[in-house]
Write a protein that binds this DNA or RNA. Structure first.
Lengths: 94, 94
DNA sequence: CCACTAAGACCCTCTTAGCGA
DNA sequence: TCGCTAAGAGGGTCTTAGTGG
C-alpha cells in the first residue's frame, strides 16, 4: 500500500486537515467514530499516513464526526473540495 | 459486508449508473480500468452488488474511465452528485 | 498526553470455475 | 454475449504491544 496513487494521498491530507480543524487528536477522532479506544489512535494514524485504507463504513463515520460530506475526502482538486464544503454549509442553512 | 451502510449503497448505485451512461458492460469497464480480462466481469459485478468494497486505486481508475470525479461515487445526496458532475464539466470547458 | 510503528492473527478481497438468461 | 455467484487462495487490515517527543 503506502500512498500508491494520488487519491490515497489526497484522502490522507483531507482527513488530517479536517481533524485539525475540529481540534481533535487521532485517538479522540477514532473514539468519536465508534472505534474501540485501545485501537483508535493506531487506526486513525494508519489512515492519515496512508499505510492502510479505510473501509467505507468507517470513512462515513469519520466524515460525520468531522462535519464534512464523505465526498470531501475524495475530491481531487481543492476547488472541488471547497465546493463540496460550501454545498454542505448551504444545506444546513436551509 | 453486503451493503451495510448508506455510503456502500450509494457507491454501488452511482457506479452502475455511470457505467450504463457510458454504455459499457461490467467486463468492458473492468478491462478499461486495467483489470485482467479474466476477472474483470467478476470484480465489477462484486462492486456493483456491494459484496466487496473497491480499493482507492481501482476506484480512481473506474472514475477516470467513466469520466466522473472520484468524489461523485461518494456523494450522499443527488444534489451534491449533480454539483460534482457540473463542476467537472465546467473544468473541461476552461 | 501526543504521533507513530513492527509483527502476526484475522478476515475481507481476488481468483478460479462455473451457473442460467 | 450478458449479469451473476460459491469457495478457497491470497494478501491487506486490525490488534497488540511498544517506541520516542
Amino acid at each position: 500500500m503506502t500512498l500508491q496513487n494520488k487519491y490515497q494521498h489526497l484522502f490522507c491530507r483531507r482527513l488530517k486537515q479536517a481533524r485539525l480543524r475540529k481540534d481533535l487528536s487521532q485517538k479522540q477522532l477514532g473514539i468519536a467514530a465508534g472505534i474501540d479506544e485501545f485501537v483508535a489512535s493506531t487506526r486513525i494514524n494508519r489512515y492519515e499516513k496512508g499505510i492502510h485504507e479505510v473501509n467505507l463504513e468507517t470513512a462515513g463515520k469519520l466524515a460525520e464526526v468531522l462535519g464534512v460530506p464523505l465526498a470531501y475526502f475524495y475530491a481531487e482538486s481543492d476547488g472541488l473540495a471547497q465546493l463540496i464544503l460550501d454545498y454542505a454549509h448551504s444545506q444546513i442553512d436551509k
